[in-house]
Lab assay of single mutants.
Amino acid sequence: MPVRRGHVAPQNTFLDTIIRKFEGQSRKFIIANARVENCAVIYCNDGFCELCGYSRAEVMQRPCTCDFLHGPRTQRRAAAQIAQALLGAEERKVEIAFYRKDGSCFLCLVDVVPVKNEDGAVIMFILNFEVVMEKDMVGSPAHDTNHRGPPTSWLAPGRAKTFRLKLPALLALTARESSVRSGGAGGAGAPGAVVVDVDLTPAAPSSESLALDEVTAMDNHVAGLGPAEERRALVGPGSPPRSAPGQLPSPRAHSLNPDASGSSCSLARTRSRESCASVRRASSADDIEAMRAGVLPPPPRHASTGAMHPLRSGLLNSTSDSDLVRYRTISKIPQITLNFVDLKGDPFLASPTSDREIIAPKIKERTHNVTEKVTQVLSLGADVLPEYKLQAPRIHRWTILHYSPFKAVWDWLILLLVIYTAVFTPYSAAFLLKETEEGPPATECGYACQPLAVVDLIVDIMFIVDILINFRTTYVNANEEVVSHPGRIAVHYFKGWFLIDMVAAIPFDLLI
């Protein structure tokens, strides 16, 4: 008679799926529990143990900040960024110097990925580790590398530091407007667009060049630039800015003055950032001319202004700041037409079709709590990747769950009947059967004279019903998954307890 339990259901295979997918890609990662103190490590794979030199037993239950890997060259700011990422709910990448158990130093890129439950609360953290440099290539500990984003994938490793954006290309926007319009339909740009040429040739750093990471940081200074100062900065030398009595002219307006920039070969870094931020506020060169004239017309309804409409929906549905990093990277690809469009465009503009998908598509409701890094690593669709929660398995109709209350009560009843059979069957065979043979035949009273025979008949009927119930009862397979398919249940029961239950259900007393 089957006594099969499996009270692990309803099970959740999400954690096993993450481990299996990460292991298949030869990654070095740990999984931490966000619900406990210090976000203790609950799993670390073999790749991480080989990377740091510690065994799994030495890593388990330690804080996922990996303070046991810190050393003299470990930056405090990087460690603080990892700790801050564990307090938030967004994906974050941090470069930090770690030390192995043998004392060797290596520069590592740590990717902190939160995993949320159905309520939107962070319950786990996945920390992925990628070695960037070994100890002989690690720089000085005073050099802070965590304020910069990861290198873009479309640049060669040897040319990542030679990417320079020439400031004269930004200063000569109005001069290039006529050349853009003359391109017409034969050019790649839309009317009114501004073409910015980027020099990728390796050259020595000069005062006129600005690194790509500095251009990325310009967006942080746009908020500090007032509207009046932006307007004066875009007017140009024809209309000098008016300053109040006793007030000095704005240095932001002076930063885009061609006369002032041409007199000296070098520009201050602050002026460069502010000038680029001011130019980015204009949607095209037409807006710059309109600002000089004193009238700013409404933005025209053409394809170039609607190019950012799908980007707005993608940004609203993005799951991490990696989408913004990807957008900034692609927006700086050289030799393309940049349409400086305000994100607050007309909502009635139709979304044009684009061959290049900048932001990841909208994630469906079932995966809105899973970050983009987890979705990318697992390579699963929205119909396959579940949320991290207890999910009731989908069972067929008329199927009994093996952990249901009805099955528990039924098993206790069958257990009592088995005990009765084990006690009274030998007793009936030894004593009652002998008395029946010696006594007179009682054929007239039937079952009324033999109450134990009636009980034995009921017990046999219950055993037959138990066999039928076992054909529709779920079970737990070797992978700790609840199986509810009727065919698989029948095959599993035939290979197991079916023969024993059938022999126990045969009414031998009635056959004798």
Rank of each mutant, 00 (worst) to 15 (best):
V370M: 14
G158N: 15
V115I: 11
D16M: 07
L316P: 08
G71V: 01
S331H: 10
V131R: 07
S239G: 05
K364Y: 03
P299M: 08
G186P: 08
P298C: 13
G314L: 07
R176Y: 03
V198I: 12
H221G: 15
D286I: 14
H368C: 13
Y327H: 06
P63G: 08
G103T: 10
G226H: 13
L109H: 05
V132W: 04
R181A: 14
H254I: 13
H70P: 01
R301E: 14
E95V: 08
N117K: 13
Q25R: 11
V131Q: 15
S318W: 15
E37L: 09
E289K: 02
G314I: 05
V195N: 01
R20N: 08
G262L: 07
F29T: 01
D259T: 14
K344S: 05
A156W: 15
S206R: 07
I96S: 01
K364S: 11
S209M: 05
A40Y: 06
Q376M: 03
L380V: 03
S182V: 06
M124H: 08
L87G: 12
S206T: 15
P202I: 01
K21S: 13
L173V: 08
Q75P: 05
W154P: 08
M60P: 01
S153L: 06
R5Q: 08
T375L: 14
S104C: 12
S209E: 08
I288A: 14
A9I: 13
S261P: 13
L200M: 06
H254L: 07
Q335T: 11
L296P: 11
D321N: 09
D219W: 06
H147G: 05
E23D: 09
P310I: 09
T145F: 04
L107N: 15
V131I: 15
A203P: 15
L385K: 09
N257P: 07
S304A: 12
R292D: 03
G71C: 01
L343C: 14
T17P: 11
A307T: 12
L338E: 12
L155E: 09
P150V: 13
S351H: 15
D67W: 01
I123S: 13
S243R: 14
A282S: 11
T353F: 08
R164W: 06
T319L: 05
A32C: 06
G189D: 05
S182E: 06
H70N: 03
A228E: 05
S320P: 08
S26T: 06
V195W: 01
F29S: 01
P227Y: 08
L324R: 11
S263T: 06
R92L: 07
I123D: 14
D321Y: 09
I330T: 14
F29K: 01
C265K: 14
G183E: 05
R73H: 05
V374L: 12
H143A: 09
S351C: 13
A190Y: 11
G24F: 09
A268K: 11
G149Q: 06
A160S: 10
G192K: 11
S278M: 15
S153K: 14
S243D: 13
A83N: 11
C64S: 09
A228R: 09
I363A: 09
V41A: 01
A285C: 15
A97Y: 15
D102V: 01
D111I: 03
V180R: 15
G149K: 12
V112A: 02
F129W: 01
E230C: 09
T201L: 06
